[in-house]
Design a protein around this nucleic acid. Structure first.
Lengths: 257, 257
DNA sequence: AAGTGGTCTAGACCACATC
DNA sequence: ATGTGGTCTAGACCACTTG
């Protein structure tokens, strides 16, 4: 009598009364099952998952138990719940521009700075890049240098490394058509969604005199350097980038509770 | 038959069936009531609150509802729950040393750096300090300058401002007896507990040639500057401090999910 | 053994979004 | 009107900590 309206790649029900619970709580086990199904691509980012009632019925658990399992995934940043609409696998990160670490004069809030692609080349991955992207050293990667401008003034310089062949479609097309936001472009053109990222902030100098000139800074001018590894929902690193900006414009706030 | 074992400063029960719920959920209202009682000092930091079952009975709500209210306070960092032991008002922050922003050579993990009080004086609060501490400009404050050393090498210099008369007992005693950790000392000597803090990280130079000399840095050497406002559980700012450290040793990691 | 928080159930009803 | 997540109830039992 139960209609299974969803394709599933796992046993429909853990019958026989025996569930794999070797000390793991039911809600934790449910969360892991759902996480695996998301990672398996059963529900893709932005797509709605079945209703909590449907999931609870599917697994034969109480509603409250399934709610707790879903809450774990929300806390993980894996899914997002919207009252009255449904439960969704989270899309790419937003509002994570390195620009949020800086205060550039006259910068309007939420203003997306203009992007200019300064360089795009297929190169062999240097050791550092290869390690970050979990590739063999020397493997082909797409290297991009991008300058970001606020009100016509250069403020951030980014060096970005992208693993090939995942980003192959970006090798030969027109970079001017990429737009100002890369992550939505990655999703649309390459089917790659950034789900999580780690940033490391340090102080240093521009990587070269040419980079300093692009930023209109003296070569020895101190810069804040933001190194970011970006991962997809499966935990694979799909972008590595380093961003430079004038240290005098750097400002970052931390809440401690 | 119900024994009221706790002193309470509010009506014991919201009788008459009418609870102040002008669109607020019951659990949110409960959380606010409990928050007010904590801020009122009914349960002090480190002390156990009544059991969730007792609280639920006291307010005449279901256990699960009270659990949700308590969960909100946990998420706020207001309380802490320990399985089998109880629910506790959170103590002072730990592991919030500005040292966590730096990597100094040979620094062992969790090593508490040695502290040396370089200056202690009662001064009139400058405008900036007065604003941070919500005092009148020129009001008396205790100014402390502290040098922190790792393996005998100076690494951080702190300028700390403390509102008077709250810290009056520190004006004339022996600073060498303060120890390496100030916040536990504040709690023990002055009855002041840091519950929350906000830090702002910027880039700059030492405040004076003398400060640079204390850090054994050139006066023009770039430094990371960490400005911290520390608040008690009631939201009052009870400490304002600025910390300088060599920018070359600065390293900070941010997780984005 | 007693007391605590953590898990789980099986409902009911409410608030929000969409068609 | 229907379907979604959010709130609330009233229990039961489990896991952990302490005396």
């Amino acid at each position: 009598m139960t209609l299974v309206t969803e394709a599933t790649t796992e046993p429909l029900f853990c019958a026989g009364g025996e569930r794999p619970l070797p000390g793991m709580s039911l809600q934790a086990w449910l969360a892991e099952r759902l996480r695996a199904r998301i990672l398996n691509g059963e529900w893709t980012p932005g797509q709605a998952m079945p209703a909590e009632s449907a999931l609870a019925a599917h697994y034969g658990v109480a509603l409250g138990t399934m709610r707790e399992a879903l809450r774990r995934l929300v806390d993980d940043g894996m899914i997002e719940r919207i009252h009255g609409r449904g439960t969704f696998v989270r899309r790419a990160l937003v509002g994570m521009s390195a620009l949020r670490f800086f205060r550039f004069g006259g910068q309007a809030l939420n203003e997306v700075p203009h992007s200019r692609i300064v360089e795009r080349a297929v190169v062999e991955a240097p050791a550092e890049v290869a390690e970050a992207l979990a590739m063999a050293p020397g493997a082909p990667v797409l290297r991009v240098r991008r300058l970001r401008e606020v009100q016509g003034r250069p403020c951030l310089l980014e060096r970005i490394w992208l693993p090939l062949p995942d980003y192959a479609v970006l090798v030969d097309d027109d970079p001017d058509a990429w737009g100002d936001l890369l992550y939505p472009m990655y999703a649309a053109r390459c089917g790659l969604t950034v789900h999580r990222a780690v940033e490391c902030i340090e102080f240093g100098q521009p990587a070269s005199a040419e980079d300093a000139a692009l930023l209109e800074l003296a070569p020895e001018q101190p810069c804040a350097v933001v190194t970011r590894s970006a991962f997809d929902v499966g935990g694979r690193c799909i972008e590595w980038r380093v961003t430079w900006g004038d240290a005098r414009a750097f400002q970052f706030t931390v809440q401690l509770t």
